[in-house]
């Protein structure tokens, strides 16, 4: 009797978490969908003209900016994170790993406003002085994000590499492969589903990050012309305008949220599918 009660209670609590997600999704879609239909899906997604007080709701420059910032963060962050993961999982002696792994994981605990602040104070002037442009830019946002996603990608990749059976490594070495050949041809291959999952989760984190990006990206409402252009991402747009938005404007911000929601869903679902497919093989 008591057993059953506890079981039921736990079940209820577990479902309430899913319930929260469901409620959020329903609310965002309910608030945002009408305006998308009002201006037309094509206009909403493909127009770059965003002047919400004058009735123009085109988010395409923000979609492009969000994607570019994320891709930039990946180009910089993924090689770094993989290098960290391979070093920590394979090359570094135990003593070094014990210090380095928690340090990298600590990066995840630093509030994003601190990243943004450091970006504004250190990174932005550097870019302005050495590369030109206003400094507040797509590049600055990508670099900051690259550092922020480092712990996510590194720690999941380390777990994936460590999960490769030791016998694979031994087998490969016994065939006369060098350590690096073994890593490249056997270990990374066997760990690839975990590593791809890590990268996709990193992407989801990058595209969803708001505060640090607002502080360093410049927030200009334009299609980015170069990595040095100031850009406004989807998340920045919501955060910047929520305070004073009303009516259709407010609804349009919810619609921006829908776009983000879809992106993140696509990332997470594809991470799941990839993990499952490779596990089956």
């Amino acid at each position: 009797m008591k057993e059953k009660l506890i079981e039921k209670t736990l079940m209820l609590l577990a479902f309430s978490a899913i319930g929260a997600l469901l409620l959020m999704a329903v609310f965002i879609f309910k608030e945002g969908m009408p305006i998308i239909f009002k201006v037309g899906i094509k206009n909403f997604l493909f127009s770059t003209h965003w002047a919400p007080t004058k009735g123009h709701f085109g988010v395409s420059s923000m979609i492009v900016s969000s994607l570019f910032v994320t891709i930039g963060a990946m180009i910089i962050g993924v090689p770094l994170a993989l290098a960290c993961a391979i070093t920590l999982a394979e090359f570094a002696p135990q003593r070094v790993t014990v210090i380095l792994k928690p340090t990298i994981e600590l990066l995840a605990g630093i509030p994003s406003v601190v990243y943004g602040f450091l970006g504004v104070v250190l990174l932005v002037p550097l870019i302005r002085d050495y590369l030109g442009g206003p400094g507040l830019s797509l590049l600055a946002a990508s670099i900051i994000l690259a550092i922020m996603i480092l712990p996510t990608i590194t720690s999941i990749s380390i777990d994936a590499i460590k999960a490769v059976p030791y016998s694979y490594k031994e087998g490969s070495l016994a065939l006369g492969a060098t350590h690096w050949q073994t890593i490249r041809m056997v270990i990374l291959k066997a760990a690839r589903s975990g590593i791809i999952t890590a990268i996709i989760l990193g992407m989801a984190r990058a595209i969803g990050e708001t505060m640090a990006v607002i502080m360093v990206a410049g927030n200009a409402l334009r299609l980015p012309q170069s990595p040095l252009s100031p850009v406004r991402t989807l998340t920045s747009n919501i955060a910047l305008e929520m305070g004073y938005a009303a009516g259709d404007h407010r609804a349009a911000l919810f619609a921006t949220g829908i776009v983000l929601f879809v992106f993140i869903m696509v990332f997470n679902v594809s991470a799941n599918i990839i993990t499952k497919r490779w596990r089956r093989e």
Binding site: P165, S172, A174, L175
Partner: peptide
């Protein structure tokens, strides 16, 4: 040295690849 001195383990450990690739690996 390990090319000259091959080893077979107590548990068979084929690499997660095709039969041909397993043999062509070395």
């Amino acid at each position: 040295l390990r090319k000259r001195v091959g080893m077979v383990f107590d548990k068979p450990v084929p690499l997660p690849r095709s039969i041909f690739e397993n043999l062509a690996y070395g």
